[in-house]
Design a protein around this nucleic acid. Structure first.
Lengths: 333, 333
DNA sequence: TTTCGTGATGTAAGCGCTTTCATGCGATTG
DNA sequence: CAATCGCATGAAAGCGCTTACATCACGAAA
C-alpha cells in the first residue's frame, strides 16, 4: 500500500542500506547519492514504517510521562515544558495519568513500557520498590520530578525546604495558632513532605498545628476543609499544601465574612496561575515548573543516550503577595 | 535479552501461533492450553515486543492528540478526559502541542503519524487542506474537537451559538456600548467564530463593537488590552473570548479602580476553574470539556474500528455569576 | 609497480510478532 | 458406516527496516 525502502532504493538506484543511512546517518553517504535518495523519497512520498524501524533498531523514540492528573495545572505546565524541551522529531511524548491511584500508576507505567517507551518521566519518589526493580530489569531509564532524593535520578525541588520557608514566614509574622490544609499524603511524597516538613519546623520551635486537614485536590474540598479548620476560633493562619486548596480556602473565607489577610493568613504552594487571580493575590511558594520540565527532559535524554546524567535540584522561592499579615491584634492573648 | 514468543511457545509446548492467539484472541484457544501458555508467560516474565507487534499487525494502539498548548486548562482537561475514556490497555495517548503555530501543528501531526498513531485528536477545523488530504491518503482517522462543522468528524460545540447567547444576555441587560477582548483569530477558528459570531449578532441589531482587541492567550495580555479598551469611556461591557482573558481584564479593572459589575460588565468563555475563583466570580459560557473528551474518544475508536461514526454536537450554557449587571445609570446618555 | 588503507556502498541476515493456510481429530448427519 | 463439518492447533511466510560484514574503487605509501 505504501512505498517501502525497497521502492526508494530501486528508484534511486542504490541499496536499501544506503536509503536507511540517508535517513539515520546522512553524513555516512556521499552528498550526490544522498540527493538522489532524497529525491526518490520525495517523489514516492515515502515515510518509514514505525513498527519496522522500532523492531530493527530496538528504539522507538517514544518517551512516556506518567502523572497523577493533567487537571492539576502544575502537571499540565510541567508536561508542556517537558515536551517542548524534547528535541523535535527525535522523540514523542506518551502521556498517561493515574488519578493519584498507585495501582493505576503501576499499570500505566507498565503499559507505557509495553508500548516501547525509551524512557519515563515520573512524579515523586513514593512507589512500590517492585516497580523500580522492574524498571531496572527492563533497563528503562527514568527521571523523577516534583521532588528530590538520592535514591533515583531526578529533576525537582525540595518540598520540605519550600514549606519550611513558608512556615517560617508565618511564624515570623507572629502567628502561633496555625493550621495546615494538606493534600492527601497517602502515596504522595510531595504532599507528605510538605505536611511533615511544616510539622517538624513547628516542633523545633516547641509548637504544633492547631489543626490539620487532609483532603483531595480540588477547590471545593479546600473550601470545605478551611471552614472546618476555622471552627477553631484561635487559628490565625492556615498554611495550604497547594494553591488550589488555598484558593478554595480563600473563597470560603470570603463567604464566611473573614477578611484576608486581616483576620486570617492563608498561604499556598506551587504558584500556578490562579495564585495571582485570587483576591487578594495569594502568598505562595514558587516552584519552577517550566524549568523543571526542561531539565527533566535534558536529564532523561542523557540517561537514554549516554546512560548517565546528573540529577538537578531547583530552588523554590517565597512569593509574598497579599494573603499574609500578622495575626489580628484582637486575638492577642 | 528478553523472552520471546518462541521461548514461551517452547516452554508451554505449543506453537507461537497459539501463544499469539492467547494474547490477542483468548477465546480461540482451549482453556487448558491457554492456562499452560499464561503460566509460561508468567514464569518467563514475558511481554511482547512492541515494534514486532506493530510491524506484524499494522496497528500500534497509539492515538495522537495535537493541541495548541497544555498550558490552557481547557485543553489539559479535555485531554485528561479523553485519555480516561480510552479503553485501558488497548490504547495509549501520544500528546503533542504546537503553541498555536500552524506550521508546527503540521509537523506535529506528521510526527505522530510517522510514529504510527492509529488515529488523531485535533483541535478545531482551520488548517491547510493539504493536511486533510495527507491524512486521507494515509488513511489515518481523526476527530476534531472544540468546534463543529460538517466537513469532518467532530465531537465539539458551537462557538458561535455560545458567544451569541452571551452577547444576547449582555444586550438584554441594556448594554449598547460593548467591546470585545478576543484571542488571536489567525488560524484559530474557535477564537474567530466567537469574535465573528458576536459581531454578527450586534450587526443584526444594528449595532457594532465600540472596540475590539485581539491578543495572545494570557492573563497579562488580557489585563493590558482591557485597560486599552476601557480608554473609551463609553464602554460599559467587555465580552471576552475566553476565561483567562476575562480574568486578566478583571484584575485590570480592580487595579483601575473600576467596580465589577457596577461600573463594567465582563464576561468570559469556557468556564474553567479560574472562572469561579475570581472576585466576583465570572459570568461565562460553560463548555462541556470533560464530556467532549469522552465523546471524542468514543467517536475516534469507532472510526478506527468500524471506519464510521457519528459526529456529536454538545450544548454550551451560560453560567451567570457575578460579573454582569445593567450598565451604570450615570452612563445613560 | 605493488600493497594497503580508507571510505562509500551493497548483501543479506535477522528483529519478534501476526496471520493465512493446512492439518488432524472428534462429532454430526444421512 | 461413510461423508462432512467445526474447531483447535501448527507450519511458515512475511511485515519493513537496520546493521554487521563483505566488497570495491581509489589514492597513498613503499
Amino acid at each position: 500500500m505504501h512505498a517501502t525502502v525497497d521502492d526508494v532504493a530501486a528508484l534511486a538506484g542504490v541499496s536499501t542500506a544506503t536509503v536507511s543511512r540517508c535517513l539515520n546517518a546522512p553524513d555516512r553517504v556521499l552528498p550526490a547519492t544522498r540527493k538522489k535518495v532524497m529525491e526518490a523519497i520525495r517523489t514516492l512520498n515515502y515515510s518509514p514504517n514505525f513498527g519496522a524501524r522500532a523492531l530493527a533498531s530496538r528504539r522507538t523514540g517514544i518517551i512516556g510521562a506518567v502523572v497523577p492528573t493533567l487537571e492539576n495545572a502544575v502537571f499540565a505546565h510541567g508536561i508542556d515544558a517537558f515536551e517542548h524541551a524534547l528535541p523535535e522529531g527525535k522523540f514523542a511524548l506518551l502521556v498517561a495519568s493515574y488519578g493519584y491511584d498507585p495501582q493505576r500508576e503501576r499499570e500505566q507505567i507498565e503499559a507505557l513500557v509495553a508500548r516501547g517507551a525509551d524512557g519515563l518521566l515520573l512524579v515523586g519518589f513514593d512507589r512500590d520498590p517492585a516497580i523500580y526493580e522492574w524498571l531496572a530489569i527492563r533497563k528503562v531509564p527514568y527521571v523523577l520530578a516534583w521532588a528530590c532524593g538520592d535514591a533515583h535520578p531526578y529533576a525537582g525541588f525540595d518540598n520540605v525546604a519550600g514549606i519550611v520557608a513558608m512556615v517560617r514566614l508565618v511564624l515570623d509574622l507572629g502567628h502561633r495558632n496555625i493550621s495546615m490544609l494538606s493534600g492527601l499524603t497517602a502515596g504522595n511524597d510531595r504532599a507528605r513532605n510538605r505536611l511533615e516538613g511544616a510539622r517538624a519546623l513547628l516542633a523545633e520551635k516547641g509548637l504544633s498545628f492547631r489543626g490539620v486537614a487532609e483532603v483531595p485536590y480540588g477547590l471545593e474540598n479546600g473550601a470545605r476543609a478551611f471552614a472546618e479548620l476555622m471552627a477553631d476560633r484561635a487559628v490565625t493562619a492556615v498554611v495550604c499544601g497547594n494553591d488550589v486548596l488555598a484558593a478554595g480556602a480563600l473563597r470560603a473565607a470570603h463567604r464566611m465574612g473573614l477578611r484576608v489577610p486581616e483576620d486570617v493568613t492563608i498561604t499556598g504552594f506551587d504558584d500556578i496561575d490562579i495564585a495571582s487571580i485570587t483576591f487578594p493575590e495569594l502568598t505562595t511558594v514558587r516552584v519552577p515548573h517550566k524549568r523543571m520540565g526542561q531539565e527533566a527532559a535534558t536529564l532523561l535524554q542523557h540517561l537514554i543516550d549516554r546512560k548517565s546524567g546528573q540529577s538537578i535540584l531547583l530552588p523554590t522561592k517565597i512569593v509574598a503577595r497579599g494573603t499574609h499579615a500578622p495575626p489580628p491584634s484582637y486575638k492577642n492573648v
